[in-house]
Design a protein around this nucleic acid. Structure first.
Lengths: 132, 132
DNA sequence: CTTGACCTTCCAGTGACTGGAAGGACTATC
DNA sequence: GATAGTCCTTCCAGTCACTGGAAGGTCAAG
């Protein structure tokens, strides 16, 4: 299977697949003409990576998860620890975004949004109060 | 005022302030020895930028907001439009993170996290089901 | 006169790709 | 066998918003 078909099968762009090889996440064999040759094993890895990335795991977390996946002597505790840490990171990001959202929504709400220059959004950015 | 004091006054690292000058967000004058010289006007700009960045606006959005702030003939509608667009972006991000969080929390919950290899997290990444 | 803390510029690296150029390989058609 | 078009290859550069570090100039204190 060529890289284009592997891309379709995994949902990852060809560019990304080459990049993943570059950074050592997989090593697809090559055919006589130098083309990468993706078999079921490689497609599995790519699909695994696509799903892990979709859950927001970093590349290094993906690398660790992949290693655990391929290690039949793993402890599920190791997997869970990575996922738990990532979950906490996600919670932190959500909290940050919610704070931003609250402030911003309030400012947008307070702004007339007409052709006059008075603007509580700019006032708040300039003065630091939450508008009001 | 030297860059170190401007950093303290604005809450931005000196490195970031130099970077902001590099990309044309402000042009602090220089003293005879070549040091940047920050006055109230520059500190205002830096503080404005720090707050806008803290609300998650991109640098280009900050540039636009700064221009509007400095334009006394602006329409508040232009400011509001930028903020509204950014608010929608934040909502999209929160939604994405919440989806991730839901899936991940479920997987973490299902994983025993002990010294055995069986792991619904890896199973889900490998097979694509949401575990169960 | 030296020490140490500041300042300067410039270059390189981060994370995770993405775009594009230059060129080789394969397939189909004439 | 020539040609066209689509694939594949590698390599280099760019993205975003900084951040780290090297090499060197400046300044105030002792």
């Amino acid at each position: 299977m060529n890289i284009g078909d592997a891309a379709k099968a995994s949902g990852l762009p060809s560019k990304t697949i080459r990049y993943y090889e570059d950074i050592g996440l997989l090593v697809p064999p090559r055919t006589a003409n130098g083309y990468r040759d993706f078999g079921p094993r490689e497609i599995n890895i790519l699909t695994f990576l696509a799903r892990a990335r979709a859950l927001g795991f970093t590349i290094e977390e993906c690398r660790a998860l992949l290693a655990l996946w391929q290690d039949t002597d793993r402890s599920s505790a190791d997997v869970r620890r990575i996922a738990q840490t990532h979950l906490e990171e996600i919670d932190r990001k959500i909290a940050d975004l919610r704070d931003m959202r609250a402030t911003l929504a309030h400012l947008v709400h307070c702004c007339a949004g007409d052709d006059r220059p008075d603007c509580p959004i700019l006032d708040s950015l300039a003065r630091g109060d939450p508008a009001g």
